[in-house]
């Protein structure tokens, strides 16, 4: 069964097309990483899925319902982001209590364990928490709510490395115990990639790639060697990224659809490309990168 289905989904905000003809489906009980550059439309997409925003055109289904104003979607979906707001007149502990009234699958034991593990004070007010602490509290809500569709939009904002690691581990353990559909968007793809089953890469509001993380890891390959040899080798290949190293050597990323041994035999160094680097290369608007901005300058 598909938990999420989008067909030709578009969202216009003024003259900006935040989403543009986006189509994809998400299978139940998978962890999907939503990847893309800033402004690619990740947050817009997630807010439409959670029923917060409505689409301009196209079709969106969550649990086979139109999410905007659907109570079923609201009761079975939770979107954790740094915009979550909670009443100032309730303490953190009272907020957990309120959440347990609303979410039928709420796991109070897990919530309380995480609450004390992360050293929260019951009497604190959400608004007075630091950025990292707010994010940490929000993910407690997100995990304990046990919603069939759990969405994290940049959940680790402001968290230090140790807490981020704890969160990823908590998320995985809870997922193993209670499989559900999870979508997570993150700038730290290298940190979350091991947790993911699938990756949805969007660029300028469109689907760019949707494949398993293992396929993404093998999607492309990096070639390093003498520019002349590399260039000769490239003739029929799809170049994803290229940059020169020093005077006569090049690093080129191409689609991984050939026998590496032949390249190695030519003296070309073959290396895997990390998914996070690859998604940057794939979504660079133009060929080249920051270096081309400075191309007019030459240092001697």
């Amino acid at each position: 069964m598909n938990v999420v289905e989008c067909k030709g989904l578009a969202k216009h905000q003024g003259s900006v097309k935040a989403l543009d003809d986006l189509s994809f489906t998400i299978k139940e009980d998978t962890i999907t990483g939503l990847i893309g550059r800033n402004g690619a439309g990740k947050t817009t997409l997630l807010k439409i899925l959670a029923g917060y925003w409505y689409e301009s055109s196209g079709e969106v289904r969550v649990f086979d319902e139109h999410p905007f104003n659907s109570l079923t979607v609201s009761a079975n979906t939770i979107l954790i982001d740094d915009q979550m707001s909670f009443s100032n007149s309730l303490t953190l502990q009272e907020l957990l209590q309120e959440a347990s009234n609303f979410y039928m699958n709420w796991d109070m034991e897990l919530a309380q364990r995480l609450f004390s593990y992360f050293n929260f004070d019951s009497k604190q007010i959400h608004e007075n928490l630091s950025k990292g602490k707010k994010s940490t509290f929000n993910i407690i809500i997100g995990l304990a709510a046990k919603c069939a569709l759990t969405i994290f939009d940049e959940p680790t904002t402001g968290m230090d490395a140790a807490v981020r690691k704890d969160f990823y581990r908590a998320l995985l353990k809870d997922y193993l115990a209670h499989p559900r559909t999870i979508i997570i968007s993150s700038h730290h793809l290298d940190e979350v990639e091991d947790l993911l089953e699938d990756v949805l890469l969007i660029n300028e509001g469109k689907r760019y790639l949707h494949l398993s993380i293992d396929d993404l890891k093998e999607y492309a390959i990096g070639l390093r060697g003498k520019s002349a040899i590399v260039r000769q080798w490239l003739n029929d290949k799809e170049v994803i990224h290229s940059q020169s190293i020093g005077t006569d050597r090049s690093y080129v990323v191409v689609k991984n659809d050939f026998d590496h041994d032949r390249a190695t035999r030519l003296g070309i160094e073959v290396s895997p490309v990390s998914p996070s680097d690859l998604s940057v290369y794939l979504t660079n608007q133009k060929q080249g990168g920051i270096d081309d901005v400075f191309s007019k300058r030459e240092f001697r």
Binding site: L172, K173, L176, D194, L195, E197, S212
Partner: peptide
């Protein structure tokens, strides 16, 4: 697959 996923903090599908 679940035990391995838990041991290495990786997705069970992997």
């Amino acid at each position: 697959q679940y035990k391995l996923a838990e041991m290495f903090t990786i997705n069970p599908a992997t």
